[in-house]
């Protein structure tokens, strides 16, 4: 989604308040933005803690900082700066984390972001965005740009199945209708789920979530009605189970009095074999690949 990110940011780049900070990343992607922004495009070097603190200082003066690095170097390395300097003060700093989940594949575990939105959503005032498709990026950037508080944007790779027609961007979208189990995916895994669930006899209903937490962006009534009717729920996310969407939905369902009789949670399981590979390799190991998603839904439907 880097090309889409660059294009989306270019639409805001002429705003004199906008400042773009990068932790020495963006090669072969962000050069057009750099050239457009001039001295408001700042390569902070390899020092993410400083970069986030600088962004907080800029925001305190009314400027509009965007902070870009790969996802783990953002939320994990600079967590205390995000907490103390940005979120305690509710400052509108936009954190752009590239390569959510296993996105950096065989680069290894230091480059994976398996607990990013779960960790960050423990902080006050923060909204997490997980665009699902390349087409979502421009809307997500537009939404974060006008958000009055801090934002974290988890970027991945768009996985829209060939020929698929997508509804316009929304924090919650129903991608397919059905009377079988309700499947809800976070971000790009929705594309894999669309492919996996096509033409199943059980007709699952597929939703995609791109904004969290639920306290800020509540599930729509139609989603609640589908869960209430189906009573079978499968949550799919490239994130560890702890702090993920499934836990959020469990609390939401309990509070709403919505009964769920059958439940599956397909989530990142770390490195069960101790081996490394592509993003798809790690998805298979975590049962996040299309076959595993299909099997989970069929089990729920049985």
């Amino acid at each position: 989604m880097r090309a889409e990110l660059c294009a989306a940011l270019m639409a805001h780049a002429d705003r004199p308040e906008m400042v773009f900070l990068t932790g020495d990343l963006g090669f072969m992607a962000l050069e057009p933005l750099r050239d457009r922004m001039g001295d408001r495009f700042i390569n902070c070097g390899i020092g993410e803690q400083n970069m986030v603190g600088v962004a907080a200082g800029l925001a305190r003066e009314g400027l509009e900082p965007w902070v870009y690095t790969i996802a783990p170097f953002c939320y994990a390395r600079a967590f205390e700066q995000i907490r103390n300097d940005i979120c305690l003060h509710g400052l509108p700093v936009r954190l752009l984390g590239n390569g959510g989940g296993y996105g950096y594949g065989v680069m290894g575990p230091t480059h994976h972001a398996l607990e990013d939105y779960g960790v960050l959503l423990t902080l006050p005032n923060l909204t997490a965005y997980v665009p699902a498709f390349n087409e979502d990026v421009i809307a997500v950037i537009g939404s974060a740009a006008v958000s009055p508080g801090p934002s974290y944007i988890r970027l991945g790779r768009g996985e829209r199945p060939a020929g698929a027609v997508l509804p316009a961007y929304a924090p919650w979208r129903r991608l397919t209708r059905g009377d079988g189990p309700v499947v809800v995916a976070v971000g790009p895994l929705a594309g894999a789920a669309m492919a996996a669930l096509a033409e199943l006899p059980v007709r699952p209903e597929l939703w995609v979530v791109s904004e969290l937490p639920l306290a800020t962006v509540a599930p729509p009534r139609a989603f609640a009605e589908s869960i209430a009717a189906s009573r079978r729920l499968c949550v799919v996310e490239e994130h560890v189970g702890q702090g993920g969407l499934a836990q959020m939905l469990a609390v939401w369902a309990l509070n709403a009095g919505i009964r769920v009789d059958g439940f599956r949670h397909q989530h990142a399981r770390g490195y069960p074999s101790g081996l490394y590979g592509s993003q798809n390799f790690h998805r298979r190991e975590s049962m996040l690949d299309p076959d595993s998603i299909r099997d989970a839904v069929l089990e729920l439907a049985a």
Binding site: Q49, G62, E80
Partner: peptide, 19 residues
Amino acid sequence: FSTGSLGHGLPLAAGLALA
């Protein structure tokens, strides 16, 4: 800014100076 965890102030000040 709320400070107290050491090592935060100078990045914040650098941001204010850059602004």
